[in-house]
Design a protein around this nucleic acid. Structure first.
Lengths: 140, 140
DNA sequence: TCATAGATGCGACATTGTTGCAATTTTGGA
DNA sequence: TCCAAAATTGCAACAATGTCGCATCTATGA
């Protein structure tokens, strides 16, 4: 018997041309449950060695290619992936990263306009905006 | 006999509490000549193996700590360092990175205001803004 | 149920960045 | 100018992240 969540996961995968495998289902479930961007490392820890490191990377790359998730922000050795439900097209919303706990959250209602910022001849394709600081929990 | 440039480099180093060594002088010279942000890898290539990888990292870290350069933008395995002459305080200006040639340039007259973007309790300390695209040379 | 295309696990490798340690260099003082 | 102490460098080793090849296993459609 399949639960609603399982059906949803299968549908998302199949609908994007991906086979439904245990690994993909588990990783996708994490994203659906998390509600915030996840790094590969966090995914590994949540899965507790149930999946190989290389496989997780391949799954993430497959998801990105299929458009199921976005590679949201990139830091030194710290890529973050998330569901695109809060994004509009190519230009992802900015993120906030806490230097205390390392968690990343989305700044959905905030957009950066850079029209006129570029010199002649430059073509902008993508923007990455990250604000670093402290979240309420790590603040005191 | 010391040239004006050599005197300038020595002064900058000594004035920031750093001993004047061959490696530091060469790296600092690169920054003074470059006029744009440099990555560790570019520095290595410009020096042509005259300095050890670990030493370059230590020099860069020492410069950052001394305030001679800023760590300007951070990408997957690609930190970029630059002189702080175009920066105002903690908040560095945004950068443009060309996906063709990999060169990074500064968007000096462009500033991002994110007041009101953060939820209650969040404290912003630093912002990183990167616009990716094509520079005029890589465009056609 | 079976064949096969594709996914996984494992091992190897590349890159980036850090650290410990011995050897060398810088610097201030005699 | 020379010396001693302190700091810097080169080298080797290591950690983390990400990719790739290959053999094995699994999901899927017929």
């Amino acid at each position: 018997m399949m639960t609603t969540a399982q059906r949803r996961v299968s549908g998302l995968l199949r609908g994007n041309g991906l086979k439904v495998t245990r690994g993909r289902a588990e990783v996708l479930n994490l994203f659906l449950d998390a509600g915030r961007p996840l790094a590969q490392r966090q995914i590994m820890e949540m899965l507790r060695l149930k999946l190989d490191r290389a496989s997780v990377y391949r799954i993430l790359n497959a998801f990105v290619e299929a458009g199921i998730i976005h590679m949201a922000y990139v830091d030194v050795r710290h890529r973050v992936y998330e569901l695109p439900d809060k994004c509009g097209g190519q230009k992802c919303h900015p993120h906030f990263s806490c230097r205390g706990c390392g968690k990343t959250t989305c700044l959905e209602d905030f957009r950066v306009y850079f029209k006129g910022a570029l010199a002649k001849g430059f073509v902008a394709e993508r923007q990455k905006v990250l604000i670093e600081g402290l979240c309420p929990d790590c603040r005191r």
